[in-house]
Design a protein around this nucleic acid. Structure first.
Length: 502
RNA sequence: GCCCCCAUCGUCUAGAGGCCCAGGACGCCACCCUUUCAAGGUGGAGAUCAGGGGUUCGAAUCCCCUUGGGGGCACCA
């Protein structure tokens, strides 16, 4: 039984979390690197919090990152694929029931009739006495008569697993030998609720056993729970898989990354225009390295290099700045057609929000790419960068049109001269960046203006912004008619508001 | 409170006894390029390798202690 099988077991109780994506990624990498099988199993036994919408978000999110699994629910139709199904725990209740019956029959577990109020009181008392919380064992050794009387009272029974004394030892692939005394596990723990529904610690073991999982790669937050799982594997007569506990992803304050303190939904990053290549690249390098100085790597390249040896032990703070840098790197590496396609939804969003008045054609975008691609930190920055091209009525701030060293009168004069130069020297048909620059530079020189001031005045007049892609390319993209119209409009504004600046 | 894990620049990390009075990247600061903004290039500041004991000819690397941080202890996952 040496076949490598790993799994990601997300719970559909929230949108796809960055931490889940990272754990999925590491499992995926391990499987692909070793030629093993990557399984996805939905842990939806928390009926109160699980939703289908979250399940869809998780499935589609992982799929869109390129982390495809060999077995589990399909991202599209949700149908199961693979020989170990079903892959949703709510559809596997019979297996948990069978496992429960077996434990009960062998007295490795027992019914517990304690009420939630009793347990709560126990816990409070222990807390007051500065004792660690643990189940007191009230129902551990009830006689058949005592059980019968509780049942007669109509008390529901949870099922508790007996934790035998002893030390549980295991070799973690990342942390080395770990040993925990079973006495510190908090006593006999519940595996099935009073209402009959099974709990995580139980289902995860029953399923990992049934699905022949060979390596459990998960977050460090499960390290302390691992002995419970090992005890359960043994009780069920199954081989214990290998464990590898990954370092946690942290908030800026070094606590476990949480929705409260960080942006944790993968979909939110995607909506901002982070590309999957950057997300994958970044997440892979959070807690792992190649051992070299390589850092810009595709998923395929990471698969080739991946190993558990270079996984870090300490937690890693999620650093958005670094993600953003990597995102820029990857955007610059995208093929033009690919970039144009990926930009589409963001342009549509800008249009819907009224930030632009029309959608550019693919040809228009293609022509723009040389001046835009290296300036995009995120895909959603496209509107901010060149949205001025697709606006019907630009209203530049008159205070911005006037360059720092100039007054309104000079600016007005300069814009008028620039317009003239453009009209006279540039033919109505051709209108290219190369043709625009020399005459305008000559104009500046002839009038004793600094070219940068002239260009800034034109820039703001025509784009409404002080920071834009290269001016002459922007003018060409805008087109002769628009350029002239906007210059006229800006001069009009200056005439009306002139004198507001010394 | 108890148990477990962890500890190299602000952040992500290289480092598996001598190549390290510690290298790279992000960020930051300068300069170059330059019509603005980016990108790119060059350089710089930034870590007494948490502290203290050992082991060793030699320790960021091995051991112990201390300190600090994190995680776990549910009829959540």
């Amino acid at each position: 039984m040496t076949e490598i099988r790993v799994r990601i077991a997300p719970s559909p109780t929230g949108p796809l979390h960055v931490g889940t994506a990272r754990t999925a990624l590491f499992n995926y990498l391990f499987a692909r690197h070793t030629g093993g099988t990557f399984v996805l199993r939905m842990e939806d036994t928390d009926a109160a919090r699980s939703t289908e919408a979250y399940e869809r978000d998780i499935l589609e999110g992982l799929h869109s990152l390129g982390l495809d699994w060999d077995e589990g629910p399909n991202p599209g139709d949700g149908d199961d694929r693979g020989p170990y199904g079903p892959y949703r725990q709510m559809q596997r209740l019979d297996r948990y029931a069978a496992a429960t019956a077996e434990l009960l029959a062998r007295d490795l577990a027992y019914p517990c009739y304690c009420t939630l109020a009793e347990l709560d009181a126990d816990r409070k008392a222990q807390e007051a006495a500065h004792q660690p919380p643990r189940y007191v064992g009230r129902c551990a050794n009830l006689t058949p008569e005592e059980r019968a009387s509780r049942v007669a009272e109509g008390r529901p029974a949870a099922i508790r697993f007996r934790v035998a004394p002893g030390v549980v030892r295991f070799e973690d692939l990342i942390r080395g030998e770990v040993e925990i005394d079973a006495a510190n596990l908090g006593g006999d723990f519940v595996v099935v609720r009073g209402d009959g529904s099974p709990l995580y610690h139980f289902t995860v073991v029953v399923d990992d056993a049934a699905m022949e999982i060979s390596h459990v790669i998960r977050g460090e937050d499960h390290l302390s729970n691992t002995p419970k799982h090992i005890l359960l594997f043994r009780a069920l007569g199954h081989d214990v898989p290998q464990f590898a506990h990954l370092p946690l992803i942290l908030n800026a304050d070094r606590t476990k990354m949480s929705k409260r303190k960080s942006q944790t939904a993968v979909a939110d990053y995607v909506a901002e225009g982070f590309v999957r290549e950057a997300l994958i690249n970044y997440l892979a390098l959070l807690g792992w390295s190649t051992g070299t100085e390589e850092e810009i790597l595709s998923l395929e390249e990471i698969v080739l290099r991946f190993d558990l040896v270079h996984v870090q032990k300490g937690g890693a703070v999620f650093d958005r700045e670094r993600l953003e840098w990597l995102n820029g790197q990857w955007i610059r590496r995208l093929e033009p057609e690919d970039l144009i396609e990926r930009l589409q939804p963001f342009l549509e969003k800008d249009l819907a929000a009224g930030r632009i008045d029309r959608l550019p054609s693919a040809e228009e975008l293609r022509a723009l790419l040389p001046i835009v691609q290296e300036r995009l930190p995120r895909l959603n920055a496209i509107g901010d960068l060149v949205g001025f091209l697709w606006i019907d009525h630009l209203e530049p701030d008159p205070a911005l049109i006037v360059p720092k060293r100039w007054d309104a009168a000079t600016t007005l004069e300069a814009l008028r001269a620039a317009r003239e130069t453009i009209v006279e020297t540039i033919g109505p048909v051709t209108f290219e960046a190369d043709e625009l620059e020399p005459p305008l530079r000559a104009l500046a020189e002839a009038r004793g203006w600094k070219a940068s001031d002239l260009f800034m005045a034109i820039r703001v007049a025509v784009t409404g912004r002080t920071a834009t892609p290269p001016l002459f390319d922007s003018l060409v993209a805008l087109g002769r008619e628009q350029v002239l119209a906007r210059l006229d409009a800006a001069m009009g504004t200056l005439e009306r508001e002139g004198g507001t600046k010394p």
